[in-house]
Design a protein around this nucleic acid. Structure first.
Lengths: 202, 202
DNA sequence: AGTATAAACGGGGACGTCTCCACTTGTCAA
DNA sequence: TTGACAAGTGGAGACGTCCCCGTTTATACT
């Protein structure tokens, strides 16, 4: 989103701009909590934050980007957890590590359903391509590809790791995940099992 | 969409209403061809069809429904082709029939990229759930489930057929399919191979 | 043919996204 | 401190979705 980290260089972001950004995030969080991400419009956020709509749009060109900024810290944390897990289990077979990773990610995904749905939510501008490339999923992809490669090696197989990762990721996207949760009635644990059943050879 | 078939009972749709519906479909087709589905707004369609926007919305509450009506006949045709294929090959192993079915469907999918993208396109109202339940994909699902069941039986396996069908369908959704086509650079044939590699045991 | 009535119409308005641009304000060099 | 100027602002407006509701019109029954 914004190229700088939380407390950015004074050279690159003016003080008032930074204050506005904080107010925007705070207002968005508040409105999201109260009304649900879906129900909140960019207009409402701007007016709650007491900035003009142009100011809001200059920072976040749609709700998706705003959600990504709101979830940023949690994403950092979950991937630190994943790194930890992978490090501490680097001796177990890759398929088991994949399972552990998915369990961690699904747990995170479950806790962050509203914001993740907001990220993938569609706005007129937001081309659908962006949904598969949002930060959390994009980062996950690299981990998956690496593990699938390892699995291929361990099992003398030659599946296309990138493709498998792509499919696994859309299976975890809001569209699919919430469909399984709400329409099919599966629990997060069910979904983990089903995915493992598909992506980890029996 | 509309509960009646093409030439519906005069009792249930007034003559003027029917004429308007035809004009809407014609106008939409024309604008879609000229400017691309994505670029055309409901307003433009209404004005090209010379009906008020309320009239348009009363028939098609969003572009997705309109696209579904425009593609309806092609959907009927492709599933007739699929039925034919399955009938004529009912003796070959189910995994091979699955492959044939996917080949037919991907071929259709490829020819109808714009309208299928339009169906899955998001409008403020159109809850994301509807994307996985649009007619063409919904119909495909039943075929997939049946074939997966057969494959399970033939191979003494116990995969969850419905889940596998769900995942296969989102892999064929515009989001995923166009990502593979445009970002990954795969051809329809490549995609068929990749999918078969994932869903048909080696 | 004439009329009652329900079906269909469409303009206008509420609200949404998003951008242009004239104006304000923070920052840095002098 | 001050002034130049880049950085930032916000309101207005173009355009979009969607629906309310007063008006028109096709249809069925007499």
């Amino acid at each position: 989103m914004n190229p700088e980290t939380e407390t950015s260089y004074p050279r690159s972001e003016r003080r008032d701009a930074s204050e506005n950004r904080q107010r925007i995030l705070k207002a968005a969080q508040k409105l999201f909590d109260k009304n649900g991400v879906e129900q909140v419009s960019m207009n409402q956020i701007a007016s709650e934050a007491q900035v003009g709509s142009a100011t809001l749009y200059r920072r976040y060109s749609n709700k998706s980007e705003l959600c990504q900024d709101l979830i940023k810290d949690n994403v950092v944390t979950i991937f630190m957890d994943i790194d930890n897990y992978l490090e501490q289990n680097h001796t177990v077979p890759p398929s088991q590590r994949l399972r552990g990773l998915l369990s961690l990610f699904i747990n995170f995904r479950e806790k962050k359903i509203p914001l993740l749905a907001g990220i993938e939510e569609s706005s007129p501008s937001n081309s659908f391509r962006s949904r598969l490339s949002s930060t959390p999923f994009n980062e996950l992809r690299q981990y998956l590809v690496r593990l699938f490669d390892e699995i291929n090696e361990a099992e003398q197989a030659h599946f296309n790791s990138v493709f498998r990762a792509d499919i696994l990721i859309i299976a975890l996207s809001s569209d699919s995940y919430l469909f399984q949760r709400e329409v099919r009635g599966y629990s997060p644990e069910n979904i983990l099992e089903l995915i493992c059943g598909m992506f980890i050879s029996h």
